[in-house]
Design a binder for these strands. Sequence first.
RNA 1: GGCGCGUUGGUCAAGCGGUUAAGACACUGCCCUUUCACGGCGGUUUCAUGGGUUCGAAUCCCAUACGCGUCACCA
Length: 488
Amino acid sequence: MSEQIRVRFAPSPTGPFHIGGARSALFNWLLARKYKDGKLILRVEDTDRARSTKESEENIKEALKWLGLTWDEGIDVGGEYGPYRQTERLHLYQEFTDKLIAEDKAYYCYCTETEIEAEREALRAENKMPIYQGHCRNLTAEQRAQYEAEGRKPVVRFRTPENQQVMFKDLVRGQMCFESNGIGDFVIVKADGMPVYNYAVVLDDALMKISHVIRAEEHLSNTPRQVVLFEALNLPVPIFGHISLILGKDHSKMSKRHGATSVDQYRKLGYLPEALVNFLALLGWAPQDEKEIFSAEELIEAFSMDRVAKNPAVFDIDKLNWINAHYIKQAKPEKITMLAIPHLVEKGYIKGPLTDVEMAKLVSFVAVIQDHLSFAAQVVNFADIFFKDDVLIESDEARETLLDETTPAVINLFKDKLKALEVVDAKAIKPIFKVITKELKVGGQKVYMPLRVALTGQMHGPDLVGLVEVLGRDKVIKRIEETMMRVK
RNA sequence: GGCGCGUUGGUCAAGCGGUUAAGACACUGCCCUUUCACGGCGGUUUCAUGGGUUCGAAUCCCAUACGCGUCACCA
């Protein structure tokens, strides 16, 4: 690609930032970063006045920043092709609309929504395509004046050329071809003066000199409408690339039913941005080799549009969890702790602000369980071990472990040894277990298990040595004593 | 319904006329670990169906089925 790469991400701020949108943004970003002069433009498509909100726009920006998907031109950062919010570009669209009308390539349509709806119904009933039948296609000046007098507010429709083949190039799907007759005269400017998506997007992409339009497949069927407009306006047609949709487990489009769908939800659950980026890249794109774990830099290096798949991909939370677990293991315990705290607060484990000492202890605890986590919120699954001093014995099997005839001796010896320690750290604690097996002549099972159950109530869990160190001598002794009292 | 896109194991997927049809997640077996997890080594499971073309087809062509998208004064 010799010309400059200029790609854009153009979300409409009508709700929480969707995971699918994040992938579109990611692919565009990767393309922009791959080429030295590549530019990513962030444009906001806010022409739907009823649904667009400032909060959504903020949410999208925050999510993009969190994911590390930086943009070179667009809202907040500016650029020479601004403004970058469609509602601030109305004067630009107006110019082109006037021109189209003057050239008779577009016309005013006074049909009301109910009239149009009735027409559509009728066509559908006959099993025909529900396209506009051209009622206002050739109105006389008198007819128009009549409608105006009635107070009707017109929309502007594009006069779609008949019997033409509309072709365009798609990087993912190859050469595409549609019949113009299947399109009909579509609305380009609403009655409130707002341009319709298919119109504004064409003008913006052309005016912002976008070279490649990479977006979701749901736009594929809309593309001929846009191509026809590019041609009518004598504007260069960009190269398209329609990436397939992300589906839920049941193969329908991802929705709330499938669990978390917004970037924000994953962020709050304690997924790491690098993991999400890594995972999203692998949904619909495959590297040449067998690598699975990619840093952003490695993705930029390896990414290319011709390895983007045509078929839709099912969002597999198990794989995301696996990737995230990988990044969690590499992360600093402090970081995971910070992500987990809101969840610990929510579950009532943490009441007020933590002191420095408490915080340090919590961090050490997180370090002990870090390898067990798929995402930070899972810390609450282990929180009882850390926060709850009255141990709940999880099963009869665990109880039996405590009733073992060797158990009292083990527990007592352990307490003595622990009390005798000058410094209570992992290095000092570890040998205790060995010594006990030797002195009491019992197997490791008989030492570790009763102590684990007395301390946590559970048969399985994080490393005991680490646990004893983090909990501290007093708490450990108090806990085992109380548990033993209770089983007797 | 028209138009369009798609269909390799439960999931992500490699493959682009000749392969024992990669790899990863999940599942599972063993090892490691005196628990679990991590990690290591194995295993089960796939070319939607039917026709062609070809010496040879997961790969090319045509049907059928199924899934999805779109046909808005939403984007």
